[in-house]
Amino acid sequence: MTASTQTAEPRTDRRLTPATQNVALESLRGVLNRPVYTAGRPARLQVALADLCREPGGARDRQVNHGAELTVIEERDGWSFVQAVADGYCGWLRDNALGSAVQPVTHRVSAPATHVYPQPSIKTTELGGLSIGARLSVVAWQDGFAQLAQGGWVPRQHLSDQPASDPASVAETLIGTPYLWGGNSRWGIDCSGLAQASLTACAIACPGDSDMQQAAFPVVEGEIRRNDLLFWPGHVAIALDATRMIHATAWTMSVVIEPIAAAITRIDAAGQGPFLGARRPPAGADAVFP
């Protein structure tokens, strides 16, 4: 790390800027003025789920799932400021949530959620749970279970080493999941978290928040199709077809299917509109999997 001589300070999106007030990634030298620059340290999330907070102990912006690849930029008082490799999202999380990225990731959790067992048997007491999208290193197979380098055994039926093919179908497996602001898991999810989880399961790169998602994909010209993303100010849904959509909504505090026309009317009536139109993600995989 070396001291900075840069003085300019352009406006940046804090969610995607790998810099604190003290330290910035080396790639920002000459762009942001910071006392210290760093190449960053690679790490991998070793807990089931972690909040990405705006500051140490602060409000949650988003979450990252088990096995997420991260770049550590600053460490301070038991907290680490990190950037997620998959989508560039930045935030603070607890140091003890981090582990080393030693074993290659081989599979993802493809079920809405799964249990981790101490032995390859459903009759043993589970060690904990993992959500859809968790990235795992499988080292052996026995009796219908995958042995994890991270420790424990997971049912084979809940894992995949190949991406899903239909984001809307992935989203439908999460119907009934409770709404959680900034949530990215089966335990709680918000509108943009549902869109990201569904697209990511199909190896389609997707940003973390709805405004980023709206900016990332081309505008739909013509009729809405399955897997189009539908946008309102601060909200996103996934089209199931030309007339129905699925979304995580505070209206029901859950993931639900709703007619598109009814949602437009309801959201307008609540003063949360207008409908901003549809965007179309790519139809095929464009990101690394698993």
Rank of each mutant, 00 (worst) to 15 (best):
N96W: 05
D77S: 15
E75N: 10
S254D: 04
K123H: 15
T20Y: 02
V219P: 10
E26Y: 11
P155W: 00
T20I: 11
L32W: 08
L49Q: 08
T20C: 10
L32T: 09
M253N: 15
F275P: 12
P155F: 07
D161M: 02
P163G: 00
L229R: 04
D13C: 11
D268P: 07
G78H: 09
A48Q: 09
T38E: 03
R244G: 07
G57W: 11
I246S: 03
Y89P: 01
V47Q: 00
H115I: 08
L136P: 09
P104N: 05
S169H: 09
A24Q: 07
L276T: 06
A48M: 06
A101Y: 05
I267M: 04
A59I: 12
R11M: 11
P282E: 04
C202P: 01
P281L: 05
I224Q: 03
R266V: 00
I189G: 11
I73D: 07
G151V: 03
C53T: 13
A171K: 04
V220T: 11
V102Y: 12
W181I: 02
R11P: 12
P112G: 01
D166A: 10
G128E: 04
G99H: 08
G273D: 09
D166E: 12
L45H: 12
T71Y: 08
A101P: 09
Q119V: 03
E9L: 14
V105D: 07
R244N: 15
L136D: 04
R54M: 14
T38G: 11
A270R: 06
D161C: 13
A149H: 10
Q142S: 14
A39M: 12
E223N: 14
P259A: 00
G58I: 03
R29Y: 03
L194T: 07
A269S: 14
R15D: 15
A195S: 09
L49Y: 00
V139G: 00
H115Y: 13
A250L: 14
S121Y: 13
T177R: 04
L276Q: 10
A84W: 02
S100Q: 15
S121N: 13
F275G: 05
N227M: 08
P155V: 08
G58E: 11
C202E: 02
F231H: 02
D77Y: 05
L230M: 12
I257P: 06
G40Y: 00
R11N: 14
W187N: 13
A285D: 01
P178D: 09
V170H: 06
L194H: 09
V82Y: 03
T200H: 15
P167Y: 07
Q272I: 12
Y117T: 06
I260C: 11
D241Q: 03
Q213H: 09
I73F: 01
S80Y: 07
A248N: 12
V36Q: 10
V23W: 00
T7S: 11
S192L: 09
